[in-house]
């Protein structure tokens, strides 16, 4: 199997103990990987290295050039309209048309000329998703993109991300601390603990996945246990 991301022995420390302690990670083209971990486990640090915002020593560090990031906050430029945000940095003759398409894909075709500060939290995050997808990334990095959204909006975003992933066929690395989010979406789930992967679970279940399904429930419980949460009433 070919790999899109190939990382060997990645270590990152900020003066103290290593935040990432000799990590190996490979992601296949088109694979959906979820990365779970408690706060301070190093997930955001790993994502920063993958997005190129941080550098760290590694034996091997292969990351595709065409990659884009959606952060926890939308990080839209407030002084540019939604569509201007989407075309930012796209070096393509019909960037406008592609941005229009991407915004339509996320259900924002009616808000293309809006100022970002007039969008709701969910709309702004969808605009950020569209901006990430306009550049047709091979690797889409999602850094807790739905953490700040309300529960209902978050569930709708899961469906949207799933559809977009199917459509664009890119590899996705979703950093989250929402266990159900990981189980609902990912092909493979990694648990990061103290700078190392402590668990890897393949989820070979058909989509859409339901929370009431005993198989997904089992995986969810396993993951929660791995994260140190025992469900007494489960």
């Amino acid at each position: 199997m070919s790999t899109l991301v190939d990382i060997r022995k990645l270590t990152r420390s900020f003066g103290g103990p290593a935040v990432l302690d000799g990590i190996d990670l490979s992601i296949a083209p088109g694979e959906f990987v979820a990365l779970l971990g408690r706060s301070g486990s190093g997930k955001s640090t790993l994502l920063r290295v993958l997005s190129g915002l941080d550098t760290a020593p590694a034996e091997r560090l292969e990351i595709p050039k065409r990659r884009s990031v959606v952060f926890q906050e939308p990080r839209l430029l407030p002084w540019k309209s939604v569509i201007q945000n989407a075309v930012l940095g796209v070096d393509h003759s019909n960037a406008k048309a592609r941005a229009q398409q991407a915004l339509t894909d996320v259900g924002l075709s009616h808000r293309t000329q809006a100022w970002p500060l007039t969008l709701s939290g969910g709309e702004a995050q969808r605009a950020a998703l569209a901006r990430a997808l306009v550049r047709e990334p091979e690797l889409l990095l999602l850094d807790e993109p739905f953490a700040a959204l309300d529960a209902l909006t978050r569930l709708r975003m899961h469906d949207l991300v799933f559809d977009l992933w199917r459509k664009h066929n890119c590899a996705v690395l979703l950093v989250t601390h929402d266990v159900w989010e990981a189980v609902a979406l990912a092909d493979r789930i990694l648990v990061l603990d103290n700078g190392r992967f402590s668990r890897e679970i393949r989820v070979d279940l058909p989509h859409p996945r339901h929370r009431s399904d005993p198989q997904t429930a089992h995986i969810e419980t396993e993951l929660l246990k791995e994260l140190g949460v025992e469900l007494s009433h489960a």
Binding site: S51, L53, L77, L88, G89
Partner: peptide, 12 residues
């Protein structure tokens, strides 16, 4: 800083 980082990830 976060906006500048966003710009960097967009290849600016």
């Amino acid at each position: 800083r976060k906006l500048i980082e966003a710009g960097q990830t967009l290849g600016l």
